[in-house]
Amino acid sequence: MEKKILLLCAAGMSTSLLVTKMIKAAEEKNIKVKIEACPVEQFNEKVNEFDIFLLGPQVRFKHTDLSNIANEYNKKVEVINMVDYGTMNGAKVLEAALKALNVN
């Protein structure tokens, strides 16, 4: 079953490169995932479409609020590790997301 991961950031720009690197890492490991990015303001309209939401470090202050909403839908919200985000380490971010979803 394909997992759906949405990266949330301030404007949706900085995460687009990370999404590309995560997709490449998933393809290399033959993992079926859908990965997209959008501004954090679109969270409410996307909450039904994705399994996990990854917050860019610049919007991590929204973690509690978004987690409270996501819990109602049985979804997860995680903050992307700042070092992995800064180095655009798609493989590590993908690995962390799949681990949070209990996917090996």
Score class of each variant (00 low, 15 high):
Y73Q: 13
A26N: 06
V79Y: 01
Q42P: 01
M82C: 01
I69F: 06
I31G: 03
H63R: 10
I35W: 01
D51A: 12
D84P: 00
L8K: 07
V83K: 13
I5E: 03
F43K: 01
K92A: 15
E27G: 14
L98H: 05
E28V: 09
A91P: 05
V33Y: 03
K46E: 05
V83Y: 13
K62N: 12
I23W: 00
A91G: 02
T20Q: 14
I35C: 05
S67K: 10
N74Q: 13
C38Y: 09
K3D: 11
V83W: 09
N104K: 12
V19M: 06
A11Q: 04
M1W: 04
E36S: 11
I23Q: 06
K76F: 08
L94G: 08
M88Q: 05
K34V: 15
C9I: 11
A10M: 13
S14G: 05
E27A: 15
N74M: 11
V59W: 09
Q58T: 14
T87Y: 12
S14T: 15
H63D: 11
E72D: 10
E2I: 15
T20K: 13
L8Y: 07
G56K: 00
E2G: 06
P57L: 05
N102Y: 07
E28Q: 12
K76C: 06
V93W: 03
N89M: 12
M82I: 15
E28M: 11
L54M: 13
R60C: 13
P39M: 09
L54P: 00
N102P: 00
M22N: 08
K99P: 00
L101E: 02
L55M: 07
K99M: 10
K75M: 09
L7E: 04
M82Q: 04
V47I: 13
N104W: 04
T15R: 04
N104G: 09
E27T: 14
A97P: 04
N71I: 02
Q58A: 11
V33M: 09
K62S: 10
G86M: 14
L18Q: 05
M13V: 13
Q58W: 02
A10S: 14
M1H: 10
M22P: 03
S67G: 08
D65A: 15
G56M: 05
E28H: 00
Q58P: 06
K21M: 08
G12W: 06
